[in-house]
């Protein structure tokens, strides 16, 4: 794996979160360095999605959801009343498990939506942004001749890359991905893994995956979650070869989960 750059872009301290009386995350500490890919792994229901959704404050859109603790983007606090979730989400993009292009919008409109709804009207600016986002998402060659076609007319894998392009178009320094390939075939999955590898030079990626090989292939850091706690985190090579915690070892070797 590559040598890790040093600056921390995200710092999570004692993050607790839950729904109503249920505490799902029980005090998570994690540092994410700039331009690194962090894989979150762990058995179903351990709180990976909840953690991810805390980072862009989508968690609190659910009724009864609460967050405590501290999240820093560089040295700016993301939690607390003064912070505007809308502003934060402009800095931290997200790709979901199920491809979810905006219905009724063309490919072009999907990718440009984020910019357009921020008031950017100039056609040349939008065109350039759409082209570069689609290129970053490795979709440009497949769609450049049919930008007016509905986003939903693409294949599942293409739709997912469209969603990646949509998130990239507003140029967030961080992109969160929640099992982005779990609904896709192996070839589409490989394409997305490849593009994550290339994207690293532009953005920092936090990705949830159930696929150990995928985590091993694409990530620099791996964090193992279990029952709402972060059991262990470290260099991916270390987590997969010499884990410190026996539970991590059991999980990555496939003995439970």
């Amino acid at each position: 794996m590559t040598v890790l750059p040093q600056t921390d872009i995200l710092t999570v301290n004692q993050l607790k979160a839950g729904f109503g009386k249920v505490e799902v995350l029980k005090g998570i500490n994690l540092k994410v360095r700039e331009h690194e890919v962090v894989a979150l792994i762990g058995p179903s229901g351990c709180g990976k999605s909840t953690f991810l959704r805390c980072l862009n404050r989508l968690h609190e859109e659910t009724e009864g959801a609460w967050i405590e603790g501290e999240i820093l983007l560089r040295d700016k606090s993301l939690l607390g009343r003064g912070q505007d979730p809308v502003e934060i989400r402009s800095q931290i993009g997200m790709v979901f498990q199920k491809p979810n292009p905006f219905p009724g919008m063309s490919i072009f409109e999907n990718v440009s939506a984020g910019l357009k709804l921020r008031g950017i009207r100039k056609k040349s600016v939008l065109e350039n942004a759409v082209e570069s986002a689609l290129k970053q998402a490795a979709l440009w060659d497949e769609v450049k001749d049919k930008l007016k076609a509905p986003g939903t007319s693409l294949s599942g894998g293409q739709q997912q890359r469209l969603c990646i392009a949509r998130a990239l178009a507003i140029r967030p320094p961080i992109v969160l991905m929640d099992e982005p390939t779990s609904a896709l075939d192996p070839i589409s999955t490989a394409k997305i893994e490849e593009l994550i590898h290339v994207l690293k030079k532009d953005v920092t990626i936090v990705i949830v995956t159930h696929n150990m090989q995928q985590a091993a292939r694409i990530s620099d850091q791996t964090a193992f979650f279990l029952l709402g706690e972060l059991v262990e985190t470290g260099l991916t090579t270390q987590i997969f070869t010499t884990p410190k915690d026996s539970r991590t070892e059991a999980y990555v070797t496939g003995r439970f989960g």
Binding site: E61, K98, G114, I170
Partner: peptide, 18 residues
């Protein structure tokens, strides 16, 4: 309209009314 479409909109940094 499925909720995940709404979430995709919010995650793009759009205000709720937009």
């Amino acid at each position: 309209m499925p909720d995940h479409v709404r979430e995709a909109g919010l995650a793009l940094g759009l205000s709720r009314w937009k």
